[in-house]
């Protein structure tokens, strides 16, 4: 069993290069969750699902699963390890099941993606709070993991550029994880959606159902806390 680590640049930034198509003739949106260049829109797929076409839902899952999985990992906040990846996978599954069950109540006032983010954020907060009551032991990427079936290695990407290169330092990587982890769930949700996943202030406001001013304020406090936590490491590289 191997979990691959994606370089974040390839995990969250749309490349526009994927040409894999599915049975609907649409491109998979990959990690970006961008709408396909052609093929059925989210709304068309939702209509098919509502009329009983479960296969159409699989297409929606493939379109948004990488984005939801990435969001869940970031919101749960711990360093990648087998335990945390399984937890992220479980939660991603929970999100899509919940969305499927509530799909009849979805209306296109908000984009499907925003609605999906709302469900994901709510479930992440629930899980995070539950997890705080039952601490999970995070394991380092640097050491192989002992499992029942033997030793398992986690693949670390080939870092090429700043500041990814600097994050080869296990200490710094731990600190950056820690900086994200110590944020309150409200601050973390905003900084993850805006700074890591590229949602606009307005989209974040809609996904979290908070006023625009609250988004700005939370982003301000989240960045300030992040900077304070990472202060000893800032100014040492050439980002």
């Amino acid at each position: 069993m191997r979990f691959r680590l994606n370089h974040p640049a390839s995990a969250s930034v749309p490349t526009g290069e994927s040409d894999q198509r599915d049975e609907f003739g649409a491109r998979d949106a990959g990690s970006s969750g961008e709408l396909p260049a052609y093929g059925p829109t989210d709304l068309e797929l939702i209509e098919r699902v509502r009329s009983g076409d479960v296969d159409a839902y699989e297409h929606l899952v493939r379109r948004y699963q990488p984005r939801v999985f990435a969001h869940v990992q970031r919101m749960l906040g711990s360093q990648p390890s087998l335990g945390s990846m399984e937890e992220a996978a479980d939660l991603t599954q929970e999100v899509f099941v919940k969305v499927y069950q509530t799909l009849p109540r979805y209306r296109a006032q908000a984009s499907f993606q925003t609605w999906l983010y709302r469900v994901t954020a709510n479930l992440c907060v629930d899980r995070y709070r539950r997890r705080q009551r039952t601490p999970v032991v995070a394991r380092s990427l640097d050491a192989p993991l002992e499992t029942d079936s033997g030793e398992v290695e986690l693949e670390v990407p080939d870092w090429g550029s700043e500041p990814s290169h600097r994050l080869q330092s296990a200490e710094l990587r731990r600190e950056v994880h820690r900086a994200l982890e110590v944020l309150s769930d409200k601050l973390r949700a905003v900084i993850v959606m805006h700074d890591l996943e590229g949602l606009s202030y307005e989209e974040v406001a809609e996904a979290l159902r908070i006023p625009l001013g609250t988004v700005k304020s939370r982003l301000f406090h989240a960045r300030a806390a992040l900077k304070a936590q990472l202060e000893p490491y800032l100014g040492q590289g050439s980002p």
Binding site: P8, P66, L172
Partner: peptide, 14 residues
């Protein structure tokens, strides 16, 4: 720089 460090955190593939 702080934001870029955050963005550089590795993610596992599903």
């Amino acid at each position: 720089e702080a934001i870029e460090l955050l963005r550089a955190l590795p993610l596992a593939a599903a």
